[in-house]
Design a protein around this nucleic acid. Structure first.
Lengths: 191, 191
DNA sequence: CACGCTATCTACCAAACGGTAGATAAACTA
DNA sequence: TAGTTTATCTACCGTTTGGTAGATAGCGTG
């Protein structure tokens, strides 16, 4: 892509960002186990050694990718999600969340692919996903608390449906994510 | 585990079955990419070369594992699933299916882990899951056809929820799979 | 322009990988 | 018991892997 000027020197912050972005898409496509250090580097037009100047190991790169997604994604929700109103409001907020997630397909895919891969307790991101998903569920549970009779169970159901829909949507792009969500929400947000 | 009689010679059919069973659990735990040929062999107390006498390559072993699951699982459903009755019957049949799946935890996990890993088009099981899931959806769609206003959409929703619930159940064994299913079904099977 | 800093590269390493070739030993048959 | 078959093993090969050491070159500052 770049007109190959032999060696491209970038300020560290810029290069790091470039690497993280490329790594995100590679991991989203093939999982973490499926991408070699060399592949990560080549995607930015550099060598393994060059990349390792910015991230001390392949595993550290993975962690940086995950933390970056946290910054990009969680911040856009966390402030909106403190109150605990009625079903209609809850649905509107969740719909906004779904819509926002939908446009960042590569991030959705990263999250889905990696969280499945990380079911293995030996996976470097295992602990990360354990705590993160637990927190997410607790957050939604608190959010539904004011009006839902069984907020805990409902939170599990909601997240399960969204996870599964994302998975199936990645398998088959023909699925109309939003329409499926709205249909589900019609039933779910009904006291 | 076995009192290590140096060399254990088994009739091919028996050995194949032993290997497939062990491989199923290893893949379920760590994905296909996460298990080496040596690990597959060691799990049966033999060497790589010994294993390769029964399966010509690591990839062929994977395919055999998948086909074995087909035999074990699909046959128990396919005969029951031809007719297309009312919501109550549909729910009962699906509940039976869910219950049957639930007791075979390692198979559920194999399927979930592997189907996520196989989102990558370069994965050796990619094609397998594409066709298999498409068929599964079509089957359920036909099954809901008689009474559901939107059988296609409903099939997607049903499978998405089940996939997602399985995923979350594997992450957190504290989830009450059956209770979650029944709650979902209460809303889903309502004309 | 000369110098220092450091981002990047080339070259290399030890370990692990999937797979092969040929030797060995366990079970069946005559 | 001797011979045949073949399941399994030991030993090895070529490749790929994550990572390291030291050389090189792009950039800012004097």
């Amino acid at each position: 892509m770049t007109p190959s000027p032999g060696r491209r020197r970038l300020p560290p912050a810029e290069r790091r960002e470039e690497i993280l972005k490329a790594a995100t898409e590679l991991i989203a496509a093939s999982g973490f186990k499926g991408v070699t250090l060399e592949a990560f580097a080549a995607a930015c037009g550099m060598t393994k050694a060059g990349l390792l100047h910015h991230f001390r190991s392949r595993e550290e790169l993975l962690i940086a990718v995950l933390e970056r997604r946290d910054e990009l994604d969680l911040t856009s929700v966390v402030d909106t999600l403190e109150p605990a109103p009625d079903p209609a409001t809850a649905r509107a907020v969740m719909s906004g969340f779904v819509r926002r997630n939908l446009v960042q397909r590569s991030l959705v895919q990263l999250y889905t692919v990696l969280s499945a891969e990380a079911l293995d307790p030996a996976h470097p991101a295992h602990a990360y996903f354990r705590t993160r998903l637990r927190e997410g569920r607790a957050m939604i549970e608190r959010y539904l608390l004011a009006w839902h009779p069984r907020p805990g169970q409902a939170a599990v159901e909601l997240l399960a449906f969204l996870d599964g829909l994302q998975l199936n949507w990645l398998r088959d792009a023909g699925i109309d994510f939003l329409a499926q969500w709205e249909t589900f929400a019609d039933r779910f947000f009904t006291a």
